[in-house]
């Protein structure tokens, strides 16, 4: 979680300096969601998510150096500098993106689950969905297909309360988003996404259900993004008070306190960890900025295999 936070802070800084361009969506505040879910993942399980993907990749164990290199458009980034922040992939790690079109990742994730079932490999696909994306029609077509064909897909709704500047209650008729699976016979839960331990518990249970062949499952994880939707969003649609409220339940602080209380780590060990991570991220940024831009002829490669 700390690594994601420090990575995103550095990405924001590099964006401000003009090293990262285009749209850049930060994950700050939501760290416990992906970390909690991925604590329960098996190596060959697949993941597919949205453009808000830096944290997802870090949690998947991917190299911050190469993520930062992609953000800065360099040749040794995860998409060779061609995809950028929103479109990163690592097939080797079963990470299928990074998708820029809201909702489009949902049928894709369902299709990856279809392959897992087809091949009988006992792996599952975790498909992340934003609260805003829950109003896109293809989500419901996917739910129907997944349930009809009992596909091993775990849908995780990252409910950070807003789709860009629109709050959930202004966009969704019925704000219990996990209940939207009921009509298709899909079970679901709503869980606290600011506490990584509750996420782990719920994700473990849901993952086991899906892996057992019973079909899809929906987890609606309540979370919050501290920054604007993307770097250019001043986030004036919410109050400072609301933001403070969530900052006071910071997922990193909650995890830290819980670990200290249970004597899992000492304060000093956590401090050292933070220092180590700061150094790692600094090295990642340096690595990215020292890397080469893609060669000109790369413009024309990868259009067809």
């Amino acid at each position: 979680m700390l690594k994601i936070r420090r990575f995103e802070e550095r990405a924001a800084q590099l964006y401000g300096m003009g090293h990262i361009g285009g749209f850049c969506h930060l994950y700050i505040g939501q760290e416990a969601v992906v970390v909690g879910v991925l604590m329960t993942i098996k190596k060959n399980d697949s993941v597919v998510t949205t453009y808000r993907d830096h944290g997802h990749m870090i949690a998947r164990g991917l190299d911050p150096k190469r993520i930062m290199a992609e953000l800065t458009g360099r040749e040794n980034g995860y998409s060779s500098g061609k995809g950028g922040s929103m479109h990163m992939f690592s097939k080797e790690n079963n990470f299928y993106g990074g998708h820029g079109i809201v909702g489009a990742q949902v049928p894709i994730g369902t299709g990856i689950a279809f392959t897992h079932k087809y091949k009988r490999d006992n792996n599952i696909c975790r498909t992340y969905i934003g609260d805003g994306a829950m109003n896109n029609g293809q989500v419901f077509e996917s739910f129907n297909l997944a349930s009809l064909w009992k596909l091993p897909v775990l849908y995780i709704i990252e409910n950070n309360k807003y789709g860009m500047g629109t709050s959930v209650d202004r966009a969704a008729a019925g704000t219990d988003l996990y209940k939207r699976g009921e009509a298709f016979g899909i079970k679901g839960d709503k869980i606290d996404g600011m506490n990584v331990f509750s996420v782990i518990k719920a994700a473990d249970k849901a993952g086991k259900y899906v892996r057992s062949g019973k079909g899809p499952y929906i987890l609606e994880v309540q979370t919050y993004r501290y920054r604007g939707h993307s770097m250019s969003d001043p986030a004036q649609y919410r109050t400072k008070k609301e933001l403070e409220l969530y900052k006071n339940q910071d997922p990193i602080e909650i995890a830290k306190n819980q670990m200290l209380k249970n004597n899992l780590f000492s304060e000093k060990e956590l401090d050292n960890l933070n220092k180590k991570i700061i150094e790692e991220i600094k090295v990642a940024a340096e690595f990215a900025l020292e890397s080469n831009y893609p060669k000109n002829e790369e413009l024309y490669t990868n259009v067809y295999v």
């Binding site: 361009g21 285009g22 992609e70 458009g73 360099r74 998409s79 500098g81 061609k82 995809g83 950028g84 922040s85 479109h87 831009y293 893609p294 000109n296 790369e298 413009l299 024309y300 259009v303």
Partner: peptide, 16 residues
Amino acid sequence: SADVPMPYSSSLEKLY
């Protein structure tokens, strides 16, 4: 524009 999807990297974008 080049007959390819738009690349992200600023260097390739300019070429595109």
